[in-house]
């Protein structure tokens, strides 16, 4: 085997493509409008980005195991609504309401996982149905109206999750650190632990994995729970940061998150995943969203871009796969 130079090995990594894409994108947008890289713009973009990002991290692991979860968007809206409803009704404190919301999300993840692993229904369809169930529940609890939220200053929960402070001209929220911590933790799990190997094996060749004694079902159920809990957490963080709780919020997030994961290089069919790639994918999409608005393209056109990028990345992966296989 020849010794590849460091540069060559870097280029061969699946994350290289997205990295280049991100750099080009930032350059282009900055070229159009120098405000793009202003501290204020960056801070604003970053705040919401990490919330979606938390979901994308969990989704990376789930997709590596070969499954999708489309209910995350509805959980993003449902959980804070549940938390605030309980709080406003005086049933519990905010903190306990938070825990309840997370537990309910975990339960929903369990149900998702059970349907997929025991009844062998495609995860896409199960979670699509669950999306509607959860959304409907959110609407039901609130009668369709946004919940009252008090400014959560002073609550230690809010401080821990979304306390903000300034570093120079940048406004940073605590959620950024949570995101970084989650990224590091999940990245390690995926690449350096046995559990990560289980996930990759289960996604790459579930029969072979089972033959080796991997409990593929248990792993997948766990990942569904992780995905739901992360979505729930992200929703609560967002709600505390913006002091709002709208039952309809989160609509459409699931596809955007999947797009982030796919663009980052995780295989759609499972078996291979990269957290670094997902982080890049998160940035690429959010920068795109922010950038096109700044340029003046109608925000509604964002969907078209996302769809085109998803298709483009899928085509690219598919082409690379075939080149690889033709080479053997």
């Amino acid at each position: 085997m020849e010794n590849h130079s460091l540069i060559q090995r870097l280029i061969a990594r699946p994350e290289f493509g997205p990295f280049v894409l991100l750099v080009v994108e930032i350059a282009v947008f900055w070229g159009f409008n120098h405000d793009f890289l202003s501290p204020q713009n960056i801070s604003n973009t970053l705040a919401f980005t990490v919330e979606l990002g938390l979901i994308a991290l969990a989704m990376t692991l789930l997709m590596t195991s070969g499954e999708f979860d489309l209910s995350v968007g509805s959980l993003f809206g449902f959980s804070p609504v549940l938390m605030w409803t309980l709080f406003n009704a005086g049933v519990t404190s905010l903190e306990v309401g938070f825990v309840v919301a997370l537990l309910v999300a975990a339960l929903i993840g369990l149900v998702n996982g059970w349907f997929v692993t025991q009844l062998k229904i495609p995860s896409f369809l199960v979670t699509l149905g669950m999306l509607l169930v959860v959304r409907g529940s959110a609407l039901f609890i609130t009668d369709g109206f946004p919940q009252r939220t008090w400014s959560a200053e002073g609550s230690w929960l809010a401080e821990a999750l979304v306390g903000d402070f300034f570093i120079g001209p940048f406004r940073i929220y605590m959620s950024l650190f949570w995101f970084i911590a989650a990224a590091i933790a999940l990245g390690y799990v995926l690449t350096q632990s046995r559990t990560g190997n289980w996930i990759q094996a289960g996604g790459g060749n579930p029969n072979a994995a089972r033959a080796r004694g991997v409990n593929v079902n248990r792993v997948k159920i766990g990942l569904f729970v992780l995905s739901s809990v992360m979505a729930s957490l992200a929703g609560v963080i967002s709600s505390l940061r913006t002091s709002a709780a709208n039952p309809n919020s989160g609509t459409g997030y699931e596809l955007e998150v999947i797009a982030m994961v796919v663009i980052g290089g995780t295989a759609l069919t499972g078996g291979r995943g990269t957290i670094i790639g997902t982080v890049l994918g998160i940035l690429i999409l959010r920068v795109m969203r922010n950038g096109i608005v700044l340029i003046g393209v109608p925000g509604l056109a964002y969907n078209i871009f996302i769809g085109a990028i998803i298709l483009g990345m899928m085509a690219l992966h598919s082409w690379l796969e075939r080149r690889h296989q033709a080479g053997t």
Binding site: F115, L119, I121, L125, V126, L128, G129, M130, L131, L132, V133, V134, R135, G136, S137, L139, F140
Partner: peptide
């Protein structure tokens, strides 16, 4: 929304 979703999942199951 709720019932549509529930019915879909039920039908699949």
């Amino acid at each position: 929304a709720f019932t549509t979703g529930a019915l879909v999942v039920l039908a699949l199951a």
